[in-house]
Amino acid sequence: MGAEPAAMTPPGAPLGAPGAASSRALLEVEDLEVTYGRSRAVEGISLSVGEGEVVGIVGPNGAGKSSTLRAIMGAVRRSGGQVTLRGKALAPGRPENIARLGVAMVPEGRHLFASMTVKENLELGRLARRRDRRPRFDDGEVAELFPVAEEFRDQRAGLLSGGQQQQVAIARALLADPDLLLLDEPSLGLSPTAVAAVFSALAHIHELGVSILLVEQRAEMTLEFCSRSYVLVGGRIRFEADRSTPIQTVIDSYFGADPSARSELRR
């Protein structure tokens, strides 16, 4: 897969220094907690994404990665902590409002509207556009980036292959013209070719100035792609890694720190 475009970090964006990022942070998460009934999925984590940065979250199954992302989006209730976008607190519980502030999410499993055409799916993506600014990219650019979206315009989204669906899902998110793109396991269930296509598109999106927070189970690929990555195990951030971190260190942390993480739970 194309890893080198990820090295392009817009000027001024901090690299690997979360403390320094706070002054220019786009997204800041502090002490986030998510609980489902009595079980705690996320136990007080803090992270940040700088303007134009690509940040990853890796961890084993059930580490709380998706919950973190969904809590940022406001799609699950958080039991503690704060999420701010450019210093402005994001109120939980109304993802539609957060979407309209410039945060777009590609949910795990794509979640296209299967009975609708690709065109209709993309049209829904445009809903969250902010009216007070010119969009960062026009439809043509999105079409260029994701030829699938153009080719199968009038096809029902549910009939596309997994890789094609993922492309449409990302295109849908992009059409909202987000400042921050949240991706939940974009490689899940895709063929290696499709994964490569998705990541090269992401690299391109990053070049256009969109910040990315990427949740992935594939640690090696994510470490390579992102400027920094948080290693999330058992609902807590164990440490922060970057391209220079040996992958073995990450893998070890999955099992070393928290034995409960060893039980691979079916998602």
Binding site: Y36, G62, R70, S260, S263, L265
Partner: peptide
């Protein structure tokens, strides 16, 4: 009341 409404089924921690 906090109930994940099915959410917990797939994003819950491994306990």
């Amino acid at each position: 009341p906090t109930s994940g409404a099915g959410e917990s089924a797939h994003t819950g921690p491994p306990r």
